[in-house]
């Protein structure tokens, strides 16, 4: 432990030299009464959540306000095919965040090329392109973008993607019909306007 003692000494000397310690801070932390520890995931998530910089069209709600790891998300696009619909999502973040990406599912059954009928979302940064340097903000922006620019090249709902490629007017009509709560190609969609 000699090496460690030497490094300790060096660091303490540096700290003393910078004389940063404020008067009201004591060194008495020997009695840690609580065994509850802030987890590394919480450390990161609190920063991510309280510093979100997202468009007004995205709203977060917390069914349990003491739980930052599970919340709901609603997106109300202000333009594009999905204008004025309100789409609900559930967001689930696990204890291994940000190693593991957030899990996001759409709670409505909607007509969208990149979202399937079970609510799975095809967004690269939620899976294969996720990395711990990305944050919650990037995910929400990406999700919002899916409603402004649905991407027919990476489809999850192939029928919707085909229509979008072949006939944009029909696609717009299908989106409108589905958002009102109705059938498109024998499939019933949830009302979200």
């Amino acid at each position: 432990m000699l090496k460690i003692r030497q490094l300790q000494k060096k660091k303490l000397e540096e700290a003393a030299a910078s004389a940063a310690a404020t008067a009201d801070i004591t060194g008495n932390s020997s009695t840690i009464s609580s065994n509850n520890k802030i987890t590394p995931a919480q450390l990161r998530l609190q920063k991510d959540i309280t510093e979100l910089d997202i468009p007004k069209s995205i709203k977060l709600t917390f069914p349990n306000s003491s739980d930052l790891f599970n919340f709901n998300l609603s997106i109300t696009p202000q333009q594009g095919y999905y204008k004025l619909g309100t789409f609900q999502f559930t967001v689930e973040i696990n204890g291994n965040f940000p190693m593991d990406p957030p899990r996001i599912k759409c709670s409505n059954k909607i007509y969208h090329p990149n979202i399937d009928l079970s609510g799975n979302v095809c967004l690269n940064i939620l899976r294969e392109d996720w990395s711990p340097v990305l944050n919650l903000n990037s995910v929400l922006i990406g999700l919002n973008f899916l409603f402004l620019e649905p991407n027919p090249n990476d489809p999850l709902n192939k029928d919707a993607a085909n229509v979008l490629v072949k006939n944009k007017t029909l696609f717009a009509k299908n989106v409108r019909d589905s958002m009102r709560g109705g059938y498109v190609d024998q499939e019933y969609y949830d009302r979200i306007v």
Binding site: R127, E128, S131, P155
Partner: peptide
């Protein structure tokens, strides 16, 4: 990170 595949490829 974990080996993952694009959802669209899987689907």
């Amino acid at each position: 990170t974990k080996q993952t595949y694009p959802v669209c490829t899987i689907a």
